[in-house]
Write a protein that binds this DNA or RNA. Structure first.
Lengths: 246, 246
DNA sequence: CGATCTGTTGATGCTCATCAAATCCAGTGG
DNA sequence: CCACTGGATTTGATGAGCATCAACAGATCG
């Protein structure tokens, strides 16, 4: 159930069977959610922390002019909003599913208990919010300082590495259940332009995209094209097979 | 010494004299730093948490193509990197001063002690990182979904409110010691375009900029032009004179 | 009082947005 | 199994926003 979540946290520090049991125990209900549904809505005070078990989701927000912006992608094993819940604050953005998904809840009480009584787990959770923030900064750098083709390429690098860090794939190909519209909404470009950039990346032989699976053909070349350096993902203790590729 | 810092934290919850004393006590040395100096450099493991006492600074990063991007502005009272220090991680970006500045250090040990033994202070610090992350998301929305003029206007709204929340000003005018190049570097536009947008905002009577003081002429009109809604700054318990303007 | 940084202006071109329509594709029902 | 349907991708044409290059004026400062 929590495999992806645990695998992700293990990139920071190894967790014992006891610790895993504590996490497993904290999870209350798992629900199936259709594509395009808000898990959390802006101006809502979440009572539980949500954990994405399966499927993809995104943080997003919409300007008054009606232009949407995806501000993060959530993969299986990603937590929704630890701090907002713990501090009992209002959500300042929404989270919606990008595919059919399974979402688990961790009641605030249990989360508080973990933070207070299990310092190692608390540190791991703390680490995961640090990574979230770091990703956010990298996206900002991407949007502000890179042209659309490198921007998209950089995103693909990130998603591949995150997929591998969560144990979702083992090579240079990963499941990417997003439409070009959803990719564009994250990169701040239109669907038309997204399409043209994707075509260029494919025609240049950099990527292959078939049946929602994106393959990066020459990882080193692609990394260098994207200016991708994985340090910002803070995977210092990554699994050797992943570490070779960072 | 810590007035701005305390004032900022008081927007989350009121702090007692005891708590303030604990913070004052944690601060070790204060140093003067010239403009344009890196306080923290990428790929460095900070030993202490840095606190900006006076002057402005920014988080930034540079792409391999040599294009820089400012990812956050730090005002007096802002902390540099609590989580990175606490988790003993590597910095994934740099921080440099944008004016002459005074910077204080809080040794990691003292910070850990506060987190472990003073839950109210810990919560306040936790809150401030939540706000930092929220600002980051708003900048992303700004860069991805708003044209340059609203983008810049929105930034000014944010900086005014943050200045007021830190007790740096009391009306609709605030000290903005930035060059147009530095503004552009944050908004992802060139210095030339920044200049033209600024001129437009001034000629339309929206803002007045004299001697590094930016005044917003009609707050309600400007807010609506900028699509600024302060909820993302999480100032729920703000001082009444500020709250009226949120 | 030259040197340097900052702000300003003009000319030109590229990246990307916008609008519109065609094609492809997966799923659905007859 | 084929026609239908609605979403996703693709293509073309045109224009706006912003970048780039270059030069100059104004401010600031040792």
């Amino acid at each position: 159930m929590l495999t992806n979540f645990i695998q992700k946290l293990n990139n920071f520090q190894e967790h014992s069977a006891d610790e895993i049991a504590i996490l497993e125990d904290a999870v209350s209900g798992v629900v199936d959610v259709d594509k395009g549904i808000d898990i959390l809505n802006e101006r809502q005070r979440p009572g539980d922390v949500q954990l994405l078990i399966d499927g993809w989701a995104c943080r997003y927000s919409v300007t008054r002019q009606g232009k949407g912006q995806i501000m993060a992608y959530l993969l299986p094993g990603d937590l929704c909003d630890v701090h907002v819940t713990l501090l009992n604050r209002m959500m300042d953005h929404s989270i919606r599913t990008l595919s059919r998904a399974k979402v688990a809840s961790i009641p605030r009480r249990k989360m508080e208990d973990i933070i207070d009584n299990h310092p190692r787990l608390a540190r791991s959770l703390f680490w995961s919010t640090l990574v979230d923030e770091s990703i956010l900064r990298m996206w900002l750098l991407n949007l502000g300082a890179r042209p659309a083709n490198r921007r998209l390429a950089h995103l693909f690098c990130e998603l591949l590495v995150r997929s591998r860090a969560a144990g979702l794939t083992a090579n240079h190909s990963f499941y990417l259940p997003l439409t070009q519209a959803e990719l564009g909404e994250a990169m701040g470009i239109t669907i038309v332009h997204t399409n043209r950039v994707m075509q260029k990346l494919r025609s240049e032989g950099l990527i292959t995209f078939r049946q929602k699976h994106l393959q990066i053909n020459d990882w080193e070349a692609f990394k260098s094209f994207s200016e991708f350096e994985s340090t910002y993902l803070h995977l210092e203790r990554a699994d050797p097979s992943l570490a070779r590729d960072l």
